[in-house]
Amino acid sequence: MPVDVIYKTKATSTGGRDGHARSEDGSVDVNLVVPKEMGGPGGEGANPEKLFAAGYSACFLGAMKAVSGKVGVKVPADASVTAEIGFGPRSEGGYGITADLTIDLPGVDKAEAEKLAKAAHEVCPYSNATRNNVDVGLIIA
């Protein structure tokens, strides 16, 4: 599926999961640390799963705002999305991730929130990138 690209950015990582990552403009500049659960030292620093969680949660909230008019559900100013990303071995070999998105829409009826989340899941670039490859759960808080 071709994409009509309207924006591009770059980030460079060195050292792998135990290194450093920086965006081309320096707005993202993080040390990377392997979590203890994955055999690393743990401690302060980010990892690819944390970065993915931040990106997916922000993008999904943006997608809800983008479709809110179409589905007739207003996104409250204090809305939030929390992405929980899991990492582990796949039965087919290699490693995979899971994603659970907890959607908090204060004051919005649960059925309406589910309608909005479902519509956002159809247009969110992260949802489209993971569809049929990552188990994504949509949870209404």
Rank of each mutant, 00 (worst) to 15 (best):
S91K: 13
L101I: 12
V134F: 14
G93H: 03
G137H: 06
D25W: 00
A119K: 01
A119P: 08
G45V: 01
V81L: 03
G137I: 10
G96D: 02
C124V: 08
S27G: 11
G72C: 13
V81I: 06
R17I: 04
K74Q: 13
V108F: 05
L101M: 07
A99S: 12
A79Y: 05
Y7A: 13
A53Q: 03
N31M: 07
G93P: 06
V136Q: 13
E84D: 02
A117D: 06
G19P: 01
I140H: 07
P2S: 14
A83D: 03
Y56W: 02
V34T: 09
R17L: 00
D100A: 15
L105A: 00
V123P: 06
N133F: 15
K8T: 15
F52C: 04
V73P: 04
D29T: 01
V73Y: 01
S27Y: 05
S57Y: 00
E84M: 08
D78S: 02
G55S: 08
T9H: 03
P48S: 08
T82E: 07
V134R: 10
L105M: 07
K74E: 14
L138M: 10
G39D: 11
V67E: 13
G26L: 09
A129L: 09
G69R: 07
E112Q: 15
G137A: 12
T14Q: 07
L61K: 07
V33D: 03
V34Y: 06
E112W: 04
K74H: 12
I103H: 02
A129G: 07
G45W: 04
P35I: 02
V33Y: 01
K65D: 13
V28G: 03
V30Y: 13
E49Q: 03
G40Y: 13
A11W: 11
D109Q: 14
K36C: 05
N31G: 10
G107A: 03
D29I: 02
E44P: 05
